[in-house]
């Protein structure tokens, strides 16, 4: 079953792979924003995760350690953001931008000796007979473990935010930092933890780009994925389930345009490669206007710094 040289089963399977980085990064950012912090440095943290993960995986030979290294590297970078915005009360928008600019520079500095190397392969999870189911097996059961882990993370974040005390406190901090402070919660500490979690998730996503999706290291490898992740959080109106839909939608568009490029479609390559960004903008417009009005669901303290004056 082929449509103009594009096999739908392969397309869906590669869509799931393509959307893992933005899914992970967007989930992390969702938690950060739920805590009332706007970290625009997702792109910088992702690329730091990509380079740290790549270096760790190549030197140790283990993809698992690579992912851990990526998460750690990005979390360390996000710690700078946490320090600046939570302790030194710097403007969150400007600090997030600084994080991206700094991350892009630092990553290309760190990755200098690693251009053109192949990382150790991240294996496919052996699911035995499931993988041999015609059609479905190819779509669902022949992936590496990060694909399944990312979907599990969606469920985990959803459950924690909705059903646990921790999730409730996090949301309280994001809705009204002053009220949470008055109740005795450590607003700054909770926000720093959320920022670190967001950093680690963005790092995992970045590491997935350099270890599985591409897989090699080049400067600027994330190519705006971090910004798309930010847009997906708005698209999802701060709901984890919708983040999954959003990420798969954009993963699908990316894969489709790549396939169209490979299949030699009559549209010029440059116009195809700008399509994911254009469609992101279009969806943002639809979501933020009219009945959608995603912004109504935004955490009330989003982007506002908290200073305990009393």
């Amino acid at each position: 079953m082929d449509f103009g040289g594009i096999n739908p089963a392969v397309l869906i399977a590669s869509l799931m792979v393509a959307s893992v980085p933005i899914l992970l990064a967007a989930l992390g950012e969702l938690v950060v924003e739920k805590a009332g912090v706007l970290n625009l440095g997702v792109e910088g943290m992702m690329i730091m995760g990509a380079v740290c993960g790549f270096i760790t995986a190549v030197t140790t030979g283990s993809p698992l350690l690579g992912f851990l290294g990526g998460a750690l590297g990005a979390a360390v970078l996000s710690l700078i953001f946490a320090l600046l915005t939570q302790v030194l009360l710097a403007n969150q928008v400007a600090t997030g931008l600084a994080l991206t600019l700094f991350g892009l520079g630092l990553s290309s500095l760190l990755g200098q000796g690693y251009v053109g190397i192949k990382p150790p392969a991240t294996g496919v999870v052996p699911l035995g007979p499931l993988a041999d189911i015609p059609g479905l097996g190819r779509i669902l059961f022949r992936h590496d473990w990060m694909v399944y882990a990312s979907i599990a993370m969606v469920a985990a974040v959803w459950a924690v935010l909705r059903f646990t005390r921790m999730g409730l406190i996090l949301r309280a901090v994001g809705e009204s930092a002053d009220a949470a402070h008055a109740l005795g919660y450590k607003v700054t500490r909770i926000r720093i933890m959320a920022i670190l979690f967001g950093g680690a998730m963005a790092g995992l996503g970045g590491a997935y780009v350099s270890l599985v999706r591409v897989p090699q290291w080049t400067d600027g490898i994330t190519a705006g994925a971090g910004w798309i992740a930010l847009a997906i959080v708005v698209f999802a109106s701060w709901r984890p389930g919708r983040v999954l839909i959003g990420a798969y939608l954009f993963g699908g568009i990316t894969v489709l345009q790549l396939n169209l490029q490979a299949a030699g479609a009559r549209i010029p390559v440059e116009y195809l490669s700008m399509s994911p960004y254009l469609i992101t903008i279009l969806v943002l417009v639809i979501m933020s206007s009219g009945k959608g009005r995603a912004s109504l669901n935004a955490p009330a303290s989003l982007g506002r710094n908290f200073h305990a004056s009393r």
């Binding site: 625009l40 928008v93 910004w227 798309i228 930010l230 708005v234 960004y277 943002l284 417009v285 933020s288």
Partner: peptide, 11 residues
């Protein structure tokens, strides 16, 4: 449409 100008301008 009240769309976030940060994301649109960057994209």
């Amino acid at each position: 449409f009240n769309t976030n100008e940060i994301l649109v301008s960057l994209l």
